[in-house]
Amino acid sequence: MTTKQLVKDPLNLIITGVGGQGNVMISLIIGNALVREGYFVTVGETYGASQRGGPVMSHLRISKENQYSPFIPDGRADIILGMEPVETLRMLGRYGNPNVLTIINPRPIYSIDVTGGQAEYPDLGKLVQTVKKLSAKTWVINATEEAQKMGSPMFANAILVGTVIGSGVLPLNKKVVEPVLRETFPKEIEANLLAFNKGIALVKQ
């Protein structure tokens, strides 16, 4: 196996969302596929005490040469995969830069601060515009909506993995990721493969 040179080394990917959405699942699938391709991968996750409902992020550092730390330095993200809109903006605020590529699922999950009335959830249309302005390129993917059409919001994970692969931002192709998906979702593999391919199709539209 010859491991391809990266467009940038290390390549820094952030996956962000709300606890319970499936951050860890996505980072595992992508991370495992990259290790099989011969890369050093370090994944830093925020999880632990009742992170369900809290903001979560996974930092993936991909390198041909070194084991990097599990933290991307401020301002140094190359790709942001946002499973939730304001969480995507939270990450751009700290880790974004003029070259960052962003994939955003525009389905809000309201925090108790918002439902409780102590905080305001911004206008979604304006929010997506701001994300676009702060990114060199943005893909808006209605992953939750598409997943619900397929029968469960949980298929959003496989859809979003598909969008990352389909967008070509990582040195990974369908052939490498499919076996990892089969190992990750042994029970519902057909539906998840369908969702994965849907993700690839959506990003190419």
């Binding site: 409902g53 974004g96 108790i112 601060d113 102590q118 929010l127």
Partner: peptide, 18 residues
Amino acid sequence: EAEAVAKSHVPERSMTFC
């Protein structure tokens, strides 16, 4: 710009029971 927008547009997300 990024810091200012994140500060003004990103609401808190306090921990809670599932």
